[in-house]
Design a protein around this nucleic acid. Structure first.
Length: 154
DNA sequence: GCCAACGTTGGC
DNA sequence: GCCAACGTTGGC
């Protein structure tokens, strides 16, 4: 089982939105970056656990945990001309973009801000703490996962 | 709202 | 296949 970090702008879709979704589950659509796409399609498996990260918020940071309940399958919003994430190059033969389904697990008692992550020497090689890191989906090592879980109660 | 980083596109 | 132009992300 692997760990990941997914970014979302809370003004677009927050962890509270997920908690209030039917069955507390949603499809993680709209990823339009090949590196992230490859992870969604090839690497992210049912049962994997994910930190839910709020970007473009005050402050940005990890706000809780979700889990993957359906591994990669074609992101159908790419084929919907009415979708904000429409991509005319996506077809049912060649869907181009992929998504997974995630389910709410827990919201942290407090958000763990990006500032706080950056102060942790154990997390200095984490993708999300690197300057200019824009990838919306990144792998998290078991060591980083445990370190961050312990921060919640620190 | 600014801007640095960086991914994507398209002309050549 | 290079690379300049352009668009997007996301912290600040």
């Amino acid at each position: 089982m692997n760990h990941w970090l997914f970014k979302s702008e809370p003004s677009c879709f927050s962890i509270d939105d997920l908690k209030q979704s039917p069955n507390q589950t949603t499809y993680w659509d709209g990823v339009r970056n090949y590196q992230a796409r490859n992870m969604l399609r090839d690497d992210i498996k049912t049962g994997d656990t994910v930190f839910f990260y709020h970007s473009n918020s005050t402050p940005p940071g990890i706000v809780g945990i979700v889990k993957v309940v359906q591994a990669g399958y074609p992101d159908f919003t790419a084929q919907d001309p009415l979708s904000d994430h429409y991509d005319p190059k996506a077809t049912s033969e060649n869907p181009r973009w992929y998504m997974v389904d995630v389910k709410f697990v827990k919201k942290f008692k407090r958000p763990i801000s990006l500032d706080e992550l950056k102060t942790q020497p154990k997390l200095k090689s984490m993708k999300v703490t690197q300057p200019g890191s824009r990838l919306s989906i990144t792998p998290v090592t078991a060591f980083e996962w445990e370190t961050i879980l312990r921060l919640e109660d620190a």
